[in-house]
């Protein structure tokens, strides 16, 4: 080889080395791996916190395990007008163990083609100062994309009926059946003037009725027999409105539809059992959706007490209106939703 070739090749190599040494400088700004993950975490946070999910009505959280496929998008917000206000029933379903699996979270909340790993947690602050942490996903590795959203959680209202003279009918003939009715007027409850964050909506939230002091309605006895709990509906827009009994599987116990507790003991809606202290009924939205109610319907929940052929033992009788005057709304609870993606 000649000196000429050596000189030429050296110049070439020197230039090549200079160019190669410039390349890492070119890539310097790109070394952060958090870029993409933060964006995905932000997007997931927005979907969870600002969106009620799809389908909206009937809400997605009403689907059971068999109909999980019908859920297209998981969102926790009460409605699209109320970002950051989450519905407790949606939250419960979202974090329910064994309901959603990894691929559901990926396809219905995180989206995207890449199977991201995730850790989603919600820390709820209770008024008594305690915290309740709900979490799903894998433990956090270093270097994940992250977003934190501050939220409020709407809990369902609970109608607590204590000792109340309005429902204590002592003048009634002792042979007549005692009927205690809890009446829900959907037209009043779903009044559009009321913001969705402060609404009692039996279509999305459970209806809670608790008679705490049943003993006060037992003037001379220790207990009385609750014969049945039945549901009746009326459509006031019809020409001759009247209550009709809703066909329902009253004698099968199904905790997905309702929970009836007599003195803390679970039973079906035809208990024919004696009760001494408390009666508590939780009517889940899954049951309400079977009743085919619209925004004008009136729903009656009738508790019938019957001790015949003996004289009636309870004096509980009358109609309790499940409305904004009688049922106190639970205050919104603050919470923090964190989404980590990697």
């Amino acid at each position: 080889m000649s000196l000429d070739f050596l000189a030429g090749f050296t110049i070439f190599m020197l230039a090549l080395i200079m160019v190669v040494s410039m390349v890492p400088g070119l890539l310097a700004g790109l070394e952060s791996s958090g870029i993409d993950y933060d964006a995905v975490a932000y997007r997931t946070g927005v979907i969870l916190v600002e969106d009620p999910g799809w389908p909206v009505y009937p809400p997605w959280e009403m689907n059971d395990l068999a109909h999980k496929g019908e859920i297209e998008r998981i969102g926790l917000a009460v409605s699209k007008e109320t970002p950051n206000i989450l519905l407790s029933t949606k939250v419960k379903k979202f974090f329910e163990e064994g309901f959603f699996d990894q691929s559901d979270y990926r396809n219905k909340a995180i989206f995207g083609d890449i199977p991201y790993s995730y850790n989603i947690s919600l820390n709820i602050s209770h008024p008594d100062g305690s915290y309740e942490l709900k979490r799903t996903g894998d433990p956090l590795p270093p270097g994940y994309g992250y977003i934190r959203r501050v939220v409020k959680i709407k809990e369902p209202a609970v109608a607590v009926i204590g000792s109340d003279s309005r429902y204590n009918d002592t003048t009634l003939n002792s042979s007549i059946l005692r009927t205690f009715t809890v009446q829900l007027n959907f037209n009043e409850l779903l009044d559009p003037e009321r913001g969705p964050a402060y609404r009692i909506d039996p279509r999305t939230e459970p209806v809670n009725v608790t008679i705490t002091d049943f003993g006060a309605y037992l003037p001379a006895n220790d207990e009385a027999t609750l014969q049945s709990v039945t549901f009746w509906k009326m459509d006031p827009t019809r020409p001759i409105p009247q209550f009709t009994r809703i066909p329902f599987s009253y004698d099968t116990e199904d905790s997905d539809l309702y929970i009836l507790l007599l003195d803390e003991e679970s039973c079906n809606l035809k208990p024919e059992k004696e009760v001494a202290n408390t009666i508590s009924l939780v009517l889940k939205p899954a049951a309400t959706s079977l009743f085919t109610l619209d925004q004008n319907s009136i729903l009656d929940i009738r508790f019938v007490f019957d001790d015949s052929p003996d004289p009636q033992r309870t004096t509980l009788n009358g109609t309790y209106l499940y409305d904004y005057d009688n049922v106190p709304l639970s205050p919104l609870k603050p919470g923090v939703l964190e989404v980590a993606i990697w």
Binding site: V19, L26, L30, D38, A39
Partner: peptide, 20 residues
Amino acid sequence: GLFFLALIINQSALVGQTTA
């Protein structure tokens, strides 16, 4: 080669920038 590298870098730089 450098030109193609630069093209790719330009594209990827857009991703992080536009989202945040």
